[in-house]
Amino acid sequence: MVDIAAELKRPKIDAHCHVRAGREEELSSQRLVEAGEMLGITEYWCSRPITARYGSLEEIRAGNDAVLAAMRRYPQRIRGLCFVVPGYYREACAEIERCLDAGMIGVKLYHQYKINDPAVWPVIELCTQRRVPILVHAGYVTDPRTKAEQPRLSHGADFAEVSQRFPETMFIMAHIGGGGDWEWTLRALRDSSPNVYVDVSGSNLDDGQVEFAVAELGAQRVLFGTDGTMAGCVGKVIGASLTEEQRHLIFWGNAERLLAAQGKQPLAKIESGQEGVAG
């Protein structure tokens, strides 16, 4: 029988999470840390994207400043991903440099541009050079309303295409449970480079989605994430039919490897053989 209490103690790195901006930053960061205590999440990779429009440079910068504030507030729990709109490519690259130099560990893109749009190339080139991952809002949505709301939403085929041009770049196709046909978008990644990862976050708790991702890509390309669906996403990885090694890769090992590419380590330490015990 699944031992839920023991599984909650297993340390986890959440590769897809958010803090809020402005006055809500402090409370949202605090609540993340509290939830992490219950769920065994020892590290959050947080961003503050603009989701419904392009946003001004000032607004983008303010969101990233909120993430930096959260990192300073909880340096042993919260890490940052720098959100940019790639079309302003000079400003976007400057903002990425600023945020990485301040300690962030990656970049977050939303659906302002598809990931395979050449407008994104300067950002991709910079991330490749800095050896940091790019987490991209994604999904293969099929209902007309959502498609109309997010016409430039990237999906598996877009990642496969761009990864052929940038095979060394570490892309993370976000939230296979974030809505959309997860089977379609995972199958479409069959031609992608091995440096394209997915995260399991999102409110969709469809049984089998984690195993399907592992079957299509291998467990070494599947990251744990929540995107706010915290207990649900912990539960889907706990409930997935996986080997102990595969579950460890998803909850911890793959994120650890992404950090190692830029010379960093997880914020919490776990001893070899102690993967089931919170650090």
Partner: peptide, 12 residues
């Protein structure tokens, strides 16, 4: 859905 998702909620 994964039943374990509901179990984690119950536990927290």
């Amino acid at each position: 859905s994964y039943p374990e998702a509901a179990l984690v909620k119950r536990a927290t």
